[in-house]
Design a protein around this nucleic acid. Structure first.
Lengths: 207, 207
DNA sequence: CGATTCGTTGACGAAGTTCAAGCTGCGTGG
DNA sequence: CCACGCAGCTTGAACTTCGTCAACGAATCG
């Protein structure tokens, strides 16, 4: 994947696909929104920066998710968490008319964005670190379709800035969840869900 | 206002307006979404409930805001914070074609909802209680158009469940902000912004 | 092989929750 | 009209959690 024939950061002829390397910026906050995107491969994050330097990760986008559905000016920025391939759509256009993906309307795209934001908000609603992390892992498991093995392609800082925790708390909480045999971690970016029910109970704040 | 000629909780002939009394439910989570709404007068809140009984307030809607833009099933519930008048729109319909409000498309409505969610997320991104409350007050001031006097129509529990704080912390933080002469509180539901710049600095997390 | 980045872990302190009590305003009923 | 109960708000004290500071280990790269 990620053939050399794909343009990096700009559109090509035919299926309008863009390639981004891990860490590259897809679009930036404040700039005019001239296009929107659908994730084809890889994972991206959207975030906002506060004047004190703090970063809020708003969400992660996986294959099929819509990115940058802004009218006018970008309200957040988007960056590649992993190497990515992204479908490019001009503002007001239906995405990839000649691609193999099903047609999506602007309305569908907006609904996709709304759904993602709702997911994020339901995470922010949890109060404690274990609740948030349990819900986060379950969300990733659900979105990627594997109910047991969960990849964590993003770094600890991304997770922390998403859940409103420090990387220390993220790390500590994950190891505690391993000790409690809720999950089993194999390296920083992969974990297995051992006790799905208990994890769900933890996420829901059940004592 | 709130004439007896308005239906309570159901539509009428002519301009399809609904009336809700403070505390009444506009729609509930999980039920099929057969309509959406535009706030005409009053304030509503949308929220979600977790199985442990905890409630997350997702946002507050003011006049002109869109409510219940779900496809399929309600992802949250909506309740009246104050007595309200609400415009009723069938799914897929353009709202109030015979009303005096400007025409709004489904896309516009979705964008309005997106904007509100973004606003909420930018609140959740703040880390400390003073930051969140300062940002909350500034947001209300901006939305209601008065840069000095701010009404807080919702109760402390609503604010707490919105910002992820207890009513105790909300109360304590507000009184501290009064002591610091950032705001002046006149009763629980009204406050004046005394030092807009300092409040903004606090919201942005500047030391 | 040093330099750098990322993740983990421990000790400590600040911030917020919990528990408990008391206050205020309001409606109800005697 | 006042007594009473109730709901919402405030405040204090004790406790818990998470952030901060610091150190260290592992992986990567020039």
């Amino acid at each position: 994947m990620l053939k050399g024939s794909l343009a990096r950061g700009r559109d090509t002829r035919g299926p309008r696909l863009l390639m981004f390397r891990k860490g590259e910026t897809i679009y930036s906050e404040g700039e005019p929104a001239r296009a929107w995107f659908v994730v084809d491969q890889g994972v991206s994050r959207t975030c906002r920066f506060y004047t004190n330097g703090h970063r809020q990760v708003i969400g992660f986008q996986y294959a099929g998710d819509v990115l940058g559905c802004d009218a006018g000016v970008r309200s957040d920025c988007a960056e590649a968490v992993t190497d990515m391939i992204v479908r490019y759509c001009d503002i007001g256009m239906v995405p990839c008319p000649d691609g193999d993906a099903p047609d999506a309307s602007v309305e569908d795209s907006l609904r996709n964005s709304l759904g993602n934001l709702h997911r994020s908000i339901s995470l922010f609603g949890r109060r404690t670190a274990p609740e948030r992390l349990a819900a986060f892992i379950l969300m990733l498991a659900e979105r990627t379709g594997f109910d047991r093995d969960v990849e964590l392609p993003m770094c600890r800082t991304d997770i922390g800035d998403y859940l409103g925790l420090t990387i220390h708390t993220v790390s500590r909480t994950l190891t505690q969840m391993c000790r409690d045999h809720l999950i089993a971690c194999e390296g920083p970016h992969h974990c297995c869900i051992l006790d799905h029910a208990a994890l769900q109970a933890l996420a829901e704040g059940v004592d």
